[in-house]
Simulated scan of single mutants.
Amino acid sequence: MKTKLKISLLVWNLSTNDGFIRASLLKSALEKLGYETEILGFLFNKNLSAAIPSDTKLFAIEGGNYPKFFPAVNKVLKHIDGDIIYAIKPQIASFGVALLKSLYSRKPVILDIDDWELSWHGGDNWRYCPTLKQLARDLLKSDGALRSPYHPLYVKWMEGLVNHADAVTVHTKFLQQRFGGMLVPNGKDTSLFDPAQCNPDSSRSRYNLSEYRILMFPGAPRPYKGLEDVLIALEKINQPDLKLVIIGGSPYDDYDQQLQQRWGRWIIKLPKYPVDAMPDLVAAAHIVVVPQRDTPETRAQFPLKLTDGMAMAKPVLSTRVGDIPEILGDTGYLVEPSCPEQIVKQIRLIFENLESANQRGIKARQRCVEKYSIEVMASKLAPLITNLL
Rank of each mutant, 00 (worst) to 15 (best):
M1V: 11
K6F: 05
K6Y: 00
S8N: 13
S8L: 05
S8A: 13
S24E: 09
S28A: 15
L30Y: 12
T37P: 10
N45R: 14
P53I: 03
D55Y: 09
L58M: 08
L58T: 03
A60V: 01
Y66P: 00
P71N: 06
I84L: 13
P90I: 00
G96M: 05
L99A: 01
Y104I: 14
D114R: 01
D114H: 03
L118G: 01
R127L: 14
Y128P: 05
T131D: 12
A136I: 14
K141D: 01
A145F: 11
K156C: 04
M158G: 07
E159Y: 07
D166F: 09
V168L: 12
K173P: 03
L175Y: 11
Q177L: 03
N186A: 11
C198P: 00
N199Q: 08
P200E: 10
S203P: 01
R204F: 03
R204V: 06
Y207G: 02
S210V: 04
Y212I: 06
Y212W: 12
I232F: 09
N238F: 08
D253R: 03
Y255S: 04
Q257D: 11
Q260R: 13
R265K: 15
K269Q: 15
V275F: 09
D276K: 10
V282A: 01
V290Y: 04
T295I: 08
K305T: 14
M310F: 01
A313M: 07
T319C: 03
Y333A: 10
P340E: 12
Q342P: 09
I343E: 01
V344C: 09
R348K: 15
E355A: 12
R365E: 00
V369K: 04
M377K: 05
P383L: 10
T386Q: 15
N387K: 14
